[in-house]
């Protein structure tokens, strides 16, 4: 039953399945209806499910998330789209002070099954505010779950699971991988939403990544193999919760860890991983945990993004350094 499809199409199929399965599921956001979203992720959904369930909203991110909270309180399961990563901040207050905390402050009486889809990351030559990776800004907040698929199959299944979750889930979609195709088996038994997956086995160094950087790490592992180095690649898939057990198991084997993400290194998810893996694997580590990511500078103009984003060479450079200890 497996079918090869692009990551964007896989999310589209997943949303379609959810809309079919549960009349309480809603899709809402700017331009998600007639246009099908600026990336066409919601293409055709309004035509098939109507304006009442696939809702073009006013251009107001706080309003989108705030009304989604109200709809969830009424029993709906809204899947909202924030058009680009850099536009989520007007909704940050609603996400952090309301969405994340309402279950706790109601002493468990209220559940908010809201999914917030955010196309994120760079590499598509976009203008300012269209290439950012703000996942750490959300991972710091208790009450939210943060996931990011790296391929079409995960995108399909993780969206199904995110919609079924009774917790708010921020679903970071690697926009530069939207058009990458892979096999999606809609009949498969899904892999647990918050569990990491070894996508390439190796013995010398572990590369840990999620979303758009998994592919870069896989390519780096292929290149390193030609130099006789065996790199293990771990697709973390979920940033909160983070699967430290899988990280630990891999690092106990390879004894070296490089974390790769597009987001700035400073206070990024790599920092938390480095700290916790150091605690867990202190006597196994042959070298400090290294991080490869964005710089402590605003995301640069598109002509500079290749220098800013971690690429094959920067990952291999970190591999060299971690092996030099």
């Amino acid at each position: 039953m497996a079918e090869k499809m692009a990551l964007a199409k896989a999310i589209n199929e997943s949303l379609r399945k959810a809309l079919e399965a549960d009349p309480k599921v809603l899709v809402m956001g700017e331009d998600v209806g007639k246009l099908g979203g600026v990336f066409r992720v919601t293409d055709g959904l309004q035509k098939d499910f109507g304006e009442d369930r696939v809702i073009d909203t006013p251009l107001a991110e706080s309003g989108i998330v705030g009304t989604a909270i109200g709809l969830a309180l009424r029993g709906y399961r809204p899947v909202v789209e924030i058009q680009f990563d850099g536009f989520v901040f007007p909704a940050y207050d609603q996400i952090v002070t309301q969405l994340a905390k309402m279950h706790a402050r109601s002493l468990g009486k209220v559940k908010l099954p809201v999914v917030i889809r955010i196309p994120y990351g760079g590499g598509i030559g976009a203008v300012e505010h269209h290439s950012e990776s703000p996942e750490a800004l959300f991972a710091h907040v208790a009450g939210l779950k943060i996931v990011s698929p790296s391929n079409a199959s995960d995108a399909y299944w993780m969206m199904q699971q995110a919609i079924q979750s009774d917790d708010p889930v921020i679903f970071f979609e690697p926009k530069r991988r939207y058009w990458d195709k892979s096999e999606v088996d809609a009949e498969a038994i899904p892999y647990p939403l918050h569990k990491a997956r070894v996508v390439r086995e190796g013995t010398d160094v572990t590369l840990a990544a999620y979303g758009p950087m998994v592919k870069v790490c896989q390519e780096a592992a292929v290149a390193a193999q030609e130099e006789g180095r065996s790199l293990e690649v771990l697709d973390l898939r979920s940033v909160s919760p983070l699967d430290f057990d899988s990280l630990q198991a891999s690092v106990e084997k390879t004894r070296r860890l490089v974390v790769v993400h597009e987001a700035p290194v400073f206070f990024g998810s790599g920092a938390e991983i480095a700290a916790r893996i150091t605690e867990r694997c202190f006597y196994h580590l042959e070298a400090p945990v290294l991080r490869v990511g964005g710089y402590h500078a605003p995301y640069p103009p598109a002509r500079l993004e290749e220098e800013y984003l971690p690429g094959l060479d920067r990952v291999l450079d970190a591999v060299d350094r971690v092996l030099a200890y």
Binding site: S62, G63, V65, G66, T67, A68, I69, G70, L71, A72, L73, R74, G75, Y76, D93, Q94, T97, Q98
Partner: peptide, 15 residues
């Protein structure tokens, strides 16, 4: 948080 609940009310009313 001042004013946040007006959006929740509106969303609830949409429901």
């Amino acid at each position: 948080v001042i004013g946040s609940q007006t959006l929740h009310a509106t969303g609830y009313a949409m429901g």
